[in-house]
Design a protein around this nucleic acid. Structure first.
Length: 285
DNA sequence: AAGCCGATCAACCGCAATGTT
DNA sequence: CAACATTGCGGTTGATCGGCT
């Protein structure tokens, strides 16, 4: 596995590690402990750079590494943590004893990410994807509702905030009644900006402002009834609304839309519940 | 049997963060 | 405080494997 030795510049070997090299590294670290990776290869008699030694040790040779397939529970944990932290693989790995950041990252990219996409979940935002939702039926419901707030509240639990913005954009075009539009402006609000929605989620966008202790985790699509009146829906324009980011992906077949049949395991992708004693601070480094 | 191709994952690279002088 | 060194992290690459035709 891995790359073949592609160069031997300055006597520094690259590529896959041999069993002999592994043993040298293990023996050295057993005796001296890890640390000062720069001088380690020289002292250990390895023709590797310190960086390569550190990577080999932390990702493969460390005795506390758990190898083998990820359990269902581990995958669920990764999904939940990723929805909070984004691509902070080291932080996620710190919550999964025996797993390395590299291993988790690989597993995410090769398994979990694809699973989410197949299930109609955007692996970046952890929200249902616009191109996999029946927007016309959603708008149909909205247009026929007198009580717009209730509709928005129900829809918001499932929808990407960008989708709601799109709805607010389309609404005035189809219904001249300005009441709907103003209600949209007041109710369909979200702290996630359109530009943020296309970026990996980071702590800064998910950390509660005043209370770091949360009893129920809210995924990327926050409920509208939690939004305060001060949060004004940003004006929707082509410059701020990244429709392409929602529409450009190829997995848009309605046949692939349903979350149900795809997975043998009834993974609770929409259910990001955390225990009451969950403390977000523990995840922030 | 042979070739193709997608999946997997160890390892590399570049950069940012942190520590030291 | 600046400059340099070291460490850590995330993205990406590419060799290998296994299934399919």
């Amino acid at each position: 596995m891995g790359r073949s030795p592609c160069c031997d510049k300055n006597g520094v070997k690259k590529g896959p590690w041999t069993a002999e090299e592994d043993q040298k590294l293990i023996d050295y670290i057993r005796f001296h402990g890890p640390g000062n990776w720069r001088i380690l290869p020289k002292n250990a008699g390895l023709q590797r750079c310190g960086k390569s030694c550190r990577l080999r040790w932390t990702n493969y040779l460390r005795p506390d590494i758990k190898r083998g397939r990820f359990s269902f529970e581990e995958e669920e944990t990764i999904i939940q943590l990723h929805s909070v932290m984004g691509n902070k693989w080291s932080a996620i790995a710190a919550r999964l004893p025996g797993r390395t950041d590299n291993e988790i990252k690989n597993h995410w990219n090769t398994h979990i990410r694809k699973r989410l996409v197949r299930s109609g979940i955007d692996p970046v935002t952890h929200s249902p994807r616009l191109d996999l939702l029946d927007l016309s039926s959603l708008l149909g419901v909205i247009f026929n509702q007198q009580n717009f707030t209730s509709v928005a509240t129900h829809a918001s639990s499932l929808l990407n905030p960008d989708l709601l913005r799109l709805a607010s954009l389309l609404l005035p075009l189809q219904n001249p009644n300005p009441t709907y539009a103003s209600n949209l402006g007041q109710n369909l609000q979200t702290p996630i900006t359109s530009s943020e929605s296309s970026q990996p989620q980071t702590e800064s966008t998910t950390t509660p402002t005043n209370n770091n202790e949360i009893s129920s985790f809210q995924p990327m699509n926050p409920r509208l009834d939690d939004v305060g009146p001060a949060d004004v829906l940003p004006p929707l324009s082509e410059s701020t609304f990244d429709l392409d980011s929602l529409m450009s992906t190829p997995m848009s077949s309605p046949q692939q839309n349903s979350i149900e049949a795809e997975e043998a395991n009834p993974s609770s992708f929409f259910d990001f519940g955390f225990p009451d004693d969950f403390i977000l601070d523990d995840f922030m480094f």
